[in-house]
Amino acid sequence: MNAYEKVALARASDRLMGNWYIGQIIDDFTELHGDRRYSDDGAIVGGIGFLDGMPVTCITMNRGGSIEDRIKRNFGCPSPEGYRKALRLMKQAEKFRRPVICFVGSPGAYCGIGAEERGQGQAIAENLWEMCALKTPVISVVVGEGGSGGALALSVADKILMFENAVYSVISPEGCASILYKDSAKAPEAAEALRLTAADLYRMKVADAIIPETYRTSEETARILKKRLVSELTALKKVSVPRLLASRYEKFRAIGAM
């Protein structure tokens, strides 16, 4: 499978995303709404539940299901208030000392006039700034398309897990092709050049593990993911907060270090 075929899989409208996996692996999930500043962004869903008995905060991008739902959720493209809701829930998790699990999968942060007026850049920057120092374990799972800064705002994590057919890129292959080749139809070539597959990210030491998708059913994939999350979080919870933060710093410090 070439890179652009992976992009198509990661984006497929019937692909199961974070909200479905939360339903599968988290018990008694309670959704919590709003950023307490402006509104409630449906492109991001967050709440509390139990992973194998362990309280956790889960945050996911949500593209929506039906057409109406997709429109309501802005096709999973978060606005500043979505990132601010995510941050509020992460700070709450820090206070009550429960781990955070983020699910990434959307084209990226919304590009609109209102989003700029309310500080899309500032909202993402604040998430990076806070997540660097969040005093509780954070795991990010890239399920679908990881689109640029909007995805990064949910993935400054202790561990980044990537689904086998997920992708993560600095720019969409179409955007890259229209800059590089002045032709967005050359997206397949751009996708290859960008090195955006899970295998690429694992090789570049950005992704820490790949969740295989070779199982017969998605329920089996969800079971594998759950097992992995339980073992990662059990290990991370044993680490002291200063050591946790030091190794998170080192994880990102090492990327492109000279």
Partner: peptide, 9 residues
């Protein structure tokens, strides 16, 4: 690529 993106973090 994504190495640039990670410089933000």
């Amino acid at each position: 690529g994504v190495l640039s993106l990670m410089q933000m973090a």
